[in-house]
Design a protein around this nucleic acid. Structure first.
Lengths: 261, 261
DNA sequence: CGGTGGATTGAGGTAGATCAACATGCGTGG
DNA sequence: CCACGCATGTTGATCTACCTCAATCCACCG
């Protein structure tokens, strides 16, 4: 098992920077150590405490699964530290990766009773776990938080839509360029701004995310590198040297205005 | 403009069958004529009335846009009658279609302030429109309904995930088989069980949904037809003669159990 | 230092795209 | 009510981006 452990600076950034999100440090949850939950960022202290009380802190080692496709969805998770891949496999070896979850992301809020994908830890992972019934009850009693949760779900949908466009209509180069910029943006939003961008996933996982093969991913990386757009730092990190070029290569979409009725 | 109007039996089925959903006819909304809103199916009469009061009934002609990418998202829509395509276009002509909305579906619940896709009526459409501020206020005041809305959003996400798998890893035949079965299932859930399955979308739209070209769609239809799996009824309707074969061809995914922690 | 799990690189094959010609059917206007 | 015309759909011939298969490389680890 040889996937290089993400270099120190990655793990460090992960927790340290998350905690100083927006510059203001909130008091950490006694149960799970998290500083903030996305659903309740602007929540008053009392209800924040109540929500914290529902969480348990857990850890997983790299390669372990948080849950698998078909499992009963008994819990909702909020990632505190590390990276997770959500994937689904077809009968023959084909696999698709829906996305890579970073600290702050929620997982497992399925409306059906069971999970429809596998969640695998790409690095050692810390997460807060909520029991579904208690979590749901809290949401029912707190419409504003539930609405925020709906909005989070809708965010995820927006991401998934972008991913659909990538898979449906983009070329290999566009896919990789999009993937890199996207990863950098999402890491940045969580204040995981490491000097070279960490790639805690293998080429195979990038391929399954982009709907390509390992070989094509590798070749595209090679081309981007020799064109000077990126620089590979070993195999698990990359420097985006020319983001404007990458943006041009990623062929981001347009949108003209139409009067809304 | 030549897309054949969906045959009579389609439109009839659309409204009539929707109203008799689950056998029990609820009293229609005075404003918008809808019998039920998905968000509030098990809602007590008072709040149901309150929600109804927020809605306006509107209609669109085929080919009109409900909204376009980039427009401010001022409204949430609930389709009452007809079919809508949600799409996004890249700078050059490339386009992707996220999905086809049927009666009962919600659109426009974006968490960002603006729409990220175009919504085009494929048939004449009736929909209920809610103003965002009033809709949000209602949700904030009714946590149970908001939670249900979150669950709807999560349903949409599940659909989008299936779509990602299709686009990422399925062959042309698998894509079309999946598309057909899926459309039939979704129409069935809404009690739009027409004898031949209505295809209110063009080949180009099917292609953009499946990440293929018009020609490939046409060829695959041809192959499925001559293999006896389907029968085309003109160009805007199809009979699924051998659903088991289609299911086998659609290569639906597996899932083994893993003990959830 | 050998072994193992990635990653890269090369050569050749193929599913589906592209380009092009033709068919079909609906709607319009005479 | 019919015929023309355009939008849509089908079918065929070729092309190509990406896949497949295979060899080699590389870094880490015991």
């Amino acid at each position: 098992m040889n996937r290089p452990v993400a270099p120190d600076w990655f793990a460090r950034a992960s927790l340290a920077e998350l905690c100083s999100k927006r510059g203001d440090v909130t008091s950490p949850c006694a149960n799970c150590g998290a500083r903030e939950f996305n659903v309740c960022q602007p929540l008053d202290p009392d209800r924040q405490t109540a929500l914290y009380a529902l969480a348990t802190r857990l850890t997983w080692k790299r390669r372990e699964r948080l849950f698998g496709s078909g499992d009963r969805a008994r819990h909702v998770f909020n990632i505190t530290e590390g990276t997770i891949a959500l994937s689904r496999s077809l009968g023959d070896g084909r696999r698709h990766i829906f996305g890579f979850l970073l600290p702050g992301d929620f997982v497992g809020f399925e409306s059906s009773g069971s999970h429809s994908c596998d969640a695998e830890a790409l690095t050692d992972v810390r997460a807060c776990r909520f029991d579904r019934p208690a979590f749901d009850a809290f949401m029912r009693a707190n419409g504003d938080v539930a609405l925020r949760l709906a909005s989070l779900a809708s965010n995820e949908l927006a991401q998934s839509n972008d991913h659909e466009v990538l898979l449906s209509r983009k070329t290999a180069v566009e896919r990789i360029a999009t993937f890199l910029l996207d990863l950098k943006r999402r890491a940045g939003e969580r204040h995981l701004r490491t000097k070279p961008l960490a790639l805690p996933m293998t080429r195979a996982q990038i391929a399954d995310y982009c709907g390509l093969t390992i070989e094509t991913v590798s070749r595209v990386f090679g081309r981007l590198k020799s064109s000077g757009a990126i620089e590979l730092e070993g195999t698990a990190a990359v420097r985006l040297l020319d983001e404007d070029r990458l943006r041009a290569l990623s062929e981001t979409d347009t949108g003209e205005e139409t009067p809304d009725r």
